[in-house]
Design a protein around this nucleic acid. Structure first.
Lengths: 360, 360
DNA sequence: CTGAAAGCGCTAACAG
DNA sequence: CTGTTAGCGCTTTCAG
């Protein structure tokens, strides 16, 4: 399996195993000369310490666990990059686990962490998660847990989120200011605080603008794509159809656009859209999409940094703190004030005689 | 750190440690009654074996390493999902490492694997990787390596790719058939076989259609977004500008669209675009994007399955095989034959008098 | 400064 | 069927 071990190095150098071990870990007990010899041979023999022997002995894995519901999503993939970037710096290894939004899977994964497999955990809970025992259980065993994005507020630890309430508020305010007096909110699991906070912001903004909220303005989406698509279509066909719509997560954007396409509803003329999304393609959508851009990379980075603070100082208990990194609303054509958007203008303009021939 | 250990269980049951261990691993040597007792107590005490003690002793980590250049990319994130799905089934853990296209990082990561940290490796090489010693070195130590997508053909192991040559050929043929007699290919690193094969397909298609290839039709992109954007813009402004363009990887799509927007080049009227991409938003781009859809999830799944075949049968050497899962060309508006696309038609049609007032 | 020795928690021969 | 025992490879007292 592995190549050389510490015993072989010791024998070759006529040193004891203990001395070699200390030299490799740069112990103050060892003379510079010996260290040099040892390091040189280790290099020559491509020696890498067996991590499992080392972990067993030191009760430290140099590994963190990252638990997320999904990875094929621009938020989570960027967050993972943020996490990875600081883990690499610290020489840590990153175990990634996907829950696919299943609470049972999440529980099973965290239960396994009980074994000491990881020194700390970064988690963004599933949309089905309805209890925090699996988390607190881990924390009680002195394995620090830091939440990012999808948090459980009842658990007393560090939580990195974006300003969900404000973002929901701003998205709604933006749509109202662009002329929508009837805005719908596409909600995902009402177990998730990110969803609920965004929705609270939405409600508050309506209230502040003296708009009353009807039940039909909150559209409960699920994890079923086809179902969501149908729900959105139905909403757009209702008598009191919305003029503006807020997609509370990225994956709800395509069904909105597609429903509009199918129904011939024009964005932004007949429906204005804002989406929580970090997609790089927002800018080149048809029409370009107004987004609430979450600081995904930064959130991952920050969460990891805080986790390592706790891991490094053995008994430094994580404060019960809420770290909020603001999102940015980037206004684009999907919420433009009744205008046609730029490219369409050009196209229409340039080909106006073609159009006549073809369409009129 | 961890909770109970096997010693505590043994003591509580008045059994030897060995017996408990065997019972937990469901050894044939142990009576049903004892197994039941042991399992019951293990459950009650939430016993999870220390993975590192176990790994050390068995020389088996139940962990695989996944090495990719990037995760915020629809191909890689879906491939990781495919890998994860089979790893979960096998009860394996997945260490994810990002190389950020750095060869040095890739080498360092694989060198670490030399320690026995993982039982097998799935790798998609960086665009800078110019040598395979770090891979073969691992294989020589009996750690199986399977490539997916970005492979090194010189290394004798299993490789899962899509039909890159054919895809490049088909993309080009498609553009030619849609009326482009001058097609440009956006190349990334010419170290990568996926790039080169796609490019070979491109060349062959030109050849088969009696089109000659000028050097300027191959645009060498890098990892620098801004640079790529400028390169593309320049190409579009040349005298012999291309009428069709093939983006060999997903991340080159936004700069193409943005360059067109900035220059007022109309897609697909003046430039037709095909991109290697799995983006779910391809359908709602402006205009919707013709893609070569790679079977990302399936490739990851397949690669993992093959890797596990080798891991399971201790000394089953992986065959030097090429497994090719075909991509699909999905024609959309960005390569349409000179027509305006659907939504634009509607918009122009519906608002034709508005247009007159505003634009003419 | 170096060495000897105990042991992390588990597994697997081997004995009974 | 159960128990005993010798390690896996490394770290870390403790002695010298």
């Amino acid at each position: 399996m592995s190549g050389t071990n510490i015993r072989a190095l010791a024998k070759e150098l006529n040193l004891s195993i203990g001395t070699v071990s200390k030299a490799l870990r740069d112990s103050y007990e060892i003379s510079a000369a010996t260290k040099k010899k040892v390091l040189a041979l280790a290099q020559k023999r491509n020696y890498i310490a067996n991590p499992y022997a080392s972990s067993l002995r030191r009760k430290k894995s140099n590994t963190i666990g990252v638990v997320v519901p999904e990875v094929a999503d621009s938020f989570f993939s960027h967050a993972i990059k943020g996490i990875d970037s600081v883990a690499q710096l610290k020489g840590y290894h990153v175990l990634v686990y996907l829950t696919y939004e299943s609470f049972a899977k999440e529980q099973a994964i965290l239960k396994d962490f009980t074994s000491g497999r990881v020194d700390g955990v970064l988690v963004s809970i599933s949309s089905e998660t309805s209890d925090d025992a699996h988390i607190t259980n881990l924390m009680n065993r002195n394995i620090p847990v830091v939440f990012f994005d999808r948090v459980i507020h009842a658990v007393a630890t560090a939580k990195i989120t974006t300003d969900d309430f404000e973002s929901g508020y701003n998205a709604t305010k933006h749509l109202i200011e662009q002329g929508c007096d009837r805005v719908a909110y596409l909600s995902i699991s009402n177990q998730l605080s990110i969803n609920n906070k965004r929705m609270e912001g939405f409600k508050e903004a309506l209230h502040d603008h003296k708009l009353t909220l009807k039940a039909s303005q909150i559209i409960r989406c699920s994890n079923n794509e086809q179902e969501n698509y149908q729900l959105i279509k139905k909403a757009l066909q209702r008598k009191n159809n919305p003029y503006g719509i807020i997609a509370s997560v990225e994956k709800l954007t395509p069904p909105v656009y597609l429903a509009c396409k199918e129904l011939g509803v024009l964005i932004p003329k007949q429906l204005k859209v804002v989406s929580f999304s970090n997609l790089e393609t927002a800018l080149i959508l048809n029409p370009s999409l107004t987004t609430i851009n979450q600081p995904a990379f930064e959130m991952g980075e920050r969460a990891a940094t805080i986790l390592f603070k706790s891991i490094d100082k053995k008994h430094y208990k994580l404060k019960n703190e809420n770290i909020i990194i603001p999102s940015k609303l980037i206004a684009r054509e999907s919420s433009a004030k009744g205008r046609l958007h730029f490219v369409q203008k050009i196209i229409c303009c340039l080909s106006i005689h073609t159009l006549f021939r073809r369409l009129c």
